Amino acid sequence: MTGVRVVTLGETMALVRADETGSLRHVRDMSLGIGGAESNVAVGLSRLGVDASWLGRIGDDSLGARVIRELRAEGIDVRAIADADAPTGLMLKERPTASTTAVHYYRSGSAGSRLSSADLPAGWVEEAAILHVTGITALVSDSAHAALVSAVERAKAAGVVVSFDVNYRSALASRTTAGPLLRDIAARADIVFGGAEELSILFPGRSPERAAALLREDGCRTTVLKQGAAGATVFDETGTTVGAGFRVDVVDTVGAGDAFVAGYLSAMLEHLSAEETLRRANACGAVACLAPGDWEAAPTLRELERFLDGDADPVMR
Rank of each mutant, 00 (worst) to 15 (best):
S163L: 07
Q227P: 13
R28W: 08
V250W: 12
A230G: 09
D258P: 03
C284E: 02
G231N: 09
I58P: 00
T233K: 07
G293R: 04
V161H: 14
T2D: 10
M316G: 08
G56M: 04
E94F: 02
A18V: 01
A171W: 03
A73E: 13
A37H: 05
D190Q: 13
T21M: 09
T222S: 11
V103E: 04
R317P: 12
G293D: 07
S207W: 11
D77F: 01
V166E: 00
K156P: 03
A138L: 09
R221K: 13
M316A: 14
D249L: 02
L225A: 02
T137L: 03
A281C: 07
S143F: 01
R107P: 08
A128H: 05
E74G: 03
V152G: 00
E11M: 07
A147H: 03
E270I: 03
A14M: 14
E303I: 01
I185S: 03
V149A: 10
H271D: 15
L71Q: 00
G33N: 14
I191P: 10
P121L: 08
V315G: 11
R25P: 05
S46K: 04
R169W: 02
P314S: 09
S113F: 01
T241L: 02
H26A: 15
V287N: 00
G35C: 10
I130P: 04
R25E: 15
Y105V: 07
T100Q: 13
V41D: 02
V287K: 00
T21H: 12
R306C: 08
A230F: 12
E20S: 15
S99R: 12
E70H: 09
T277R: 11
G49W: 01
R107N: 11
S273T: 15
V254W: 08
S207Y: 08
D313N: 12
A118T: 14
R280Y: 09
S143R: 11
R221T: 11
A122D: 15
E153F: 05
L182K: 07
